[in-house]
Design a protein around this nucleic acid. Structure first.
Lengths: 353, 353
DNA sequence: GTGAAAGCGCTAACAC
DNA sequence: GTGTTAGCGCTTTCAC
């Protein structure tokens, strides 16, 4: 392996000078610098970043701890983070926590052991996720997508409560009367906030919240399937569903399909998190869209600047993508809906806020 | 920072002994070992893996270089890799190459500088991707999803040619006559193999290959959209499309939808790579499914064992998921197809292989 | 402006 | 079995 000493010898300078040149410190004689660069070239020297990290007591690496790398919502966040990371010479280590506190803690240990210079996390629990050791070692931490209750950290999130409120209101305005809700693990801030928004919308419409129309699930496809199945076969079956993440929405739609329930006509649906195939489903799927890439970018920016002290919370807006799955009316266009049942349509009865 | 010396002092042993205990070397007095563990505990000592890596000249880290972290196909591969990595104490660094050779090369530099102990890559080009420096430094490399032509490396891939052949044959058997093909960058082995399979199926059916029905694209959504648009507005418009990856399939379907072309009835479609929402589209989408998770797992296993010398190539099978998008016949069930046009159905004319 | 030398935290000879 | 010690490759005082 070619070391900095080899380069120094070849360029007839000291290792210190080579280091200075390589780290663009100014004040190095330009002729010497030239020789160093030449030696680097001819020897095809590559700095050993492990040695550098040991010496500097910090590795140019960020850990990004998310709960599911197969969830497009999270990968889109990661894209945003990555672009900033790359532009600033940081590597990104992706860690799947699977919504598991032990896994999460394990990754914090790795971040500590590897002397990483930052951690971005979507915490599995807003109270139990413990970033104390990270902060104690001065490693900047930013939470993303979700918040933490017991620590002073900067966060980048969306306005979940309002997003959920708008979605629910939209279903009510479309004439649905018994809107159910499938929500994620209540240990996450997103689940609680989205549930709160759902409740708020019902209250604002002068409706009482029927707890039997709420299912707490796991943000996964199978969970959405089971919850939808369960809700639809209950005594007071909902005529609409607000499903609070993308994976559970897929599961819920599969359940409806398997039960022979027609989306929109029989049961209106609004999901959370937009995606390219929402437009390709029939009926097309209404969703609450989040600026995912931007969330990631901003979290990374925060991390770069040391995570901000005192901590800041950036709350980005969501936007309702109203499509056919939440319209009782048969659409005029060619969206592939059966036309025979258009008569199911009925006038809007809810108060429009 | 607590070091191994602090632990040694506290346990009244030498640093070497602490190291031995921590690395589970046998032959350490059990009483001493107990004291060491106790000291580790009370001081909440965490080994510094940077120092360890420097000393050992290797970091317990794998680089996984893929072209798009937002493509579910790749994230599913990564899942498989990750599970093996975690079970063996390796961290995974995810790198997006964006199908770009320069980016790719950049990540190889990082892997080298970080002394990583393995690289899994889905090469952007089968001839131009250069893993020479990696191999020269003895870093094991495995390619995944795609192969490399100019290097001796182990690979885990699927039988792309046959998958494409079966898909095309399936469309012909369903009565489509002018099957078009949207293929990825020809620098990738997958694109060439899938195209070859498509051609083979046409030949086997006694048809000549109409080059004007083939579009070379980029494995991205926008590329699929543009290609479909282009194909459908050409002089000899296809009555079916074989689209060779998931993202381009989404794009192609969007294009068809925007043009008012009915999938299945007007244009049959088979995509590559299965996904959960294929069942939710209307008509449901036929695809060629790959055992993605398993591909990742096996690649990781190979890497663990030093990438195998001489290199091996594992070729896994694909499976055709025949659904409604490739059926001209109107389905009996509740799949949401307009029923008025079922008369479009016509008998199969192709020879069934 | 440049070089000598110490030292980041750990492991592995090697000596006892 | 256990301890001493050198050294992995780099950066950074501190002299000059």
């Amino acid at each position: 392996m070619v070391t900095i000493y080899d380069v120094a010898r070849r360029a007839a300078v000291s290792p210190a000078t080579v280091s200075r040149v390589l780290n663009q410190r100014q004040g190095v004689d330009s002729e010497m610098a030239r020789r160093v660069l030449e030696a680097v070239e001819t020897l095809s020297y590559r700095p050993n970043s492990v040695a550098r990290s040991l010496r500097r007591q910090a590795a140019p690496v960020w850990a990004v701890v998310i709960s599911d790398i197969e969830n497009p919502h999270f990968t889109s966040l990661v894209r945003g983070i990555e672009d900033v990371a790359r532009a600033n010479g940081k590597s990104v280590v992706l860690c799947n926590s699977d919504e598991d506190l032990a896994e999460e803690a394990q990754y914090f240990e790795v971040a500590l052991a590897e002397q990483m210079s930052g951690v971005i996390i979507s915490p599995a629990s807003d109270r139990l996720t413990n970033i104390g050791a990270l902060l104690a070692r001065g490693i900047p931490v930013v939470t993303i997508d979700r918040r933490l209750r017991n620590s002073r950290v900067s966060s980048v999130v969306v306005d979940n409560r309002n997003g959920a409120r708008v979605a629910t209101r939209h279903l009510l305005a479309a004439g649905y009367e018994r809107v159910g809700c499938i929500v994620g693990p209540l240990a996450t801030s997103t689940a609680r906030e989205r549930l709160a928004g759902y409740r708020a919308a019902l209250r604002e419409a002068g409706l009482r919240v029927d707890e039997s129309l709420i299912r707490v699930s796991d943000y996964k496809e199978a969970g959405g399937y089971a919850s939808a199945n369960d809700l639809l076969s209950g005594a007071t079956s909902p005529d609409a569903l607000f499903v609070t993440n993308n994976l559970m929405t897929v599961g819920a739609l599969e359940a409806l399909s398997d039960m022979g329930v027609r989306v929109a006509q029989d049961v209106g649906v609004v999901g959370f998190d937009d995606n390219p195939w929402a437009r390709l489903m029939r009926p097309t799927l209404s969703t609450v869209a989040q600026p995912t890439y931007d969330i990631g970018r901003r979290a990374a920016d925060l991390l770069l600047s040391g995570a901000a002290d005192p901590p800041v919370v950036l709350t980005l807006p969501t936007s309702l993508m109203a499509r056919d799955s939440s319209r009782r009316t048969a659409p005029a266009g060619r969206s592939g809906r059966r036309t025979g049942t258009a008569a199911t349509q009925e006038p809007t009865r809810r108060r429009l806020p």
